[in-house]
Every structure is written in C-alpha cells, then in structure tokens.
Nucleic acid binder design. Sequence first.
DNA 1: ATAATTTTTGCAACATAATTGCATTTGTTT
DNA 2: AAACAAATGCAATTATGTTGCAAAAATTAT
Lengths: 140, 140
Amino acid sequence: MVMANTIFDILKRNQLSVTDSRKNILELFQQTNGALAHADIEKKTDEQFDRVTIYRTLQTFVDKGIIHTIPTADNSVLYALCKDECTQGHHHDNHVHFICDDCNTTYCLDHVTVPEVSLPKGFNQKRTDVVVSGICNNCN
Amino acid sequence: MVMANTIFDILKRNQLSVTDSRKNILELFQQTNGALAHADIEKKTDEQFDRVTIYRTLQTFVDKGIIHTIPTADNSVLYALCKDECTQGHHHDNHVHFICDDCNTTYCLDHVTVPEVSLPKGFNQKRTDVVVSGICNNCN
DNA sequence: ATAATTTTTGCAACATAATTGCATTTGTTT
DNA sequence: AAACAAATGCAATTATGTTGCAAAAATTAT
C-alpha cells in the first residue's frame, strides 16, 4: 500500500481535522532536518499560535505516531518526525539520535540502527533509545 | 592509584567544601540503588535543605563528574552516581539505563555495556546514552 | 450551499519547575 | 581566633506545563 505524504493526507489518514496550526507545525517538521523543541516551534511559526495550542498539537502528533519525543540528558523535550509512521500507542523508533554539543542541533540518524542490548534476567525490553552526543559534521 | 571513597574524601578530592547538604545528598546517592530526581532528594532529606540548595548541589556534582544525568523519554531529570568518577567535563558513563514503565524505577545496569555505534562521516562521538524501557525484574 | 454538530483554538487562571541576586551563615585558611 | 572565601536560604522572577471554558473553525448532515 502506497501512502501519500502530503500534509493533508497525513492528517486525514490519522483522522485529524485539518487546521492551520497542525498544517503549519507539521510542515515545519518536514522542512527541518532534525528535532524541534516547543520553544523552537513557537519562534519558527512566528508566534501565530498559542503556547497551549502547540502543546496540544505536539501531544496529538505523538499520540498518533506522527512525531516522537527524543530523550535528552538535560531537561529539554525534543520532537522529531517518525520516518515510518508508527501505529498509535505502539511506537517503535529504532534509529539513533545525535545531539551536537556545539550547535545544539539534533539529528535523526536514520541509517544507524539501534544495536541489540541484552538485559539481565527478568527485565523485559519494550523500547530502546540511543542518544549520542558530540560534534556534528557541520561543526567539525 | 587507590582512591578512598568515603564521602569526605570524594568531596575533598573534588575541591569542594564539606557541607551538610553535600554530605547528606551524596550519602543518599550511595545508599540508593538507582537514580534520583530532584523531588526524591527533597523528600528523602526530610526537606531540611532548600530547593535551591539541592539544585546547586546537583549541578556542582554533575560539573565535577560525581553524578551524571540520565536522559529520560518523559520530561523528568534523573541523576545517578558515576561509578568511576569522570574527569570534569569529560564525562563517560558507558552503562545502560533501564526505566520500568510500571514502578518507574530507574536502574543503572552497570554490567550491560553500551554497544558501539558507528556514526556517519564527520560526526564525532563524545558520549552515548542508552535508555531501555520496559518491565523490570521486580514487576515481572 | 447552509445549518447543525463536533472539534479545536485561545484566553485566563493555575500549578510546577528552575534560576538569580543578595544578605546571612557556614566552612576554610591564616 | 580572626579574616577570608564559599555555600546556604530567602524572596523574587522566569520558564514550563496543565486545565476549564467560551469562541472560533472544521467537519458532517441536510
């Protein structure tokens, strides 16, 4: 099955009504090579949307598996597009994230797969996040 | 070189003055098998220290490489002891963290080493965080 | 197309988390 | 024990995130 990837189709496919904020924020993710924080989105949409709307839009997208959160060692919450859309709730996002210590950009390294981790007995693995930090190819 | 690991020695070795809050918080980490959030520390020290003091103590310990932060998928910031003390700034903490979806405990799986990740050209790796989530051996 | 219905948005209020400046207290050095 | 340096606690401030509800927008039915 071939799925269209226009913004409209993505929203429709996920049973979401097509609104300005959703269109704009989703477009922003498609144009961005990397991850975005709430504050980034606020700025880059020129503050045309309420903070609350952005929070809710992000949450909706996460719930639908359109974007995913990236764990970071500092406090910040980052979001990035899921390359292959995940089914609702069952999110699997098995690529490595890279955060540049210099320019602070976050990359989804889609071609670097997450290695297997063997856990001690009794531990049941659901999800693995790998976050590498260092200097990116731009800053090098 | 053998390093003493009493609380006093750890503080001294890191050129930190020995204060009540630092002694208590460091002791708490040594007694805790796992990670602690700011709120945990506040509770477990019986609220004898100001919130701000705890923030500053944690930051100091991170700067000195005595503890490290753990990236989590949700927002929360967790801290855990570095097993081998890291040199200031150059932090390497190559074990896997496990977060239980059920009881929410975070484990430092010291014996599960972080697998090698090969990055694309131009990317320079400094640190790798692996966070596995699922069900722990207690909740299973 | 228009009206009815559902969903989303923006505002206000609230709650929590984290940071900063400064006077006081505590720890360290002389 | 005094002088000095560093850390603490308080108050104020900023940042971050949540909730309820009326108004606005989108979807569905007519």
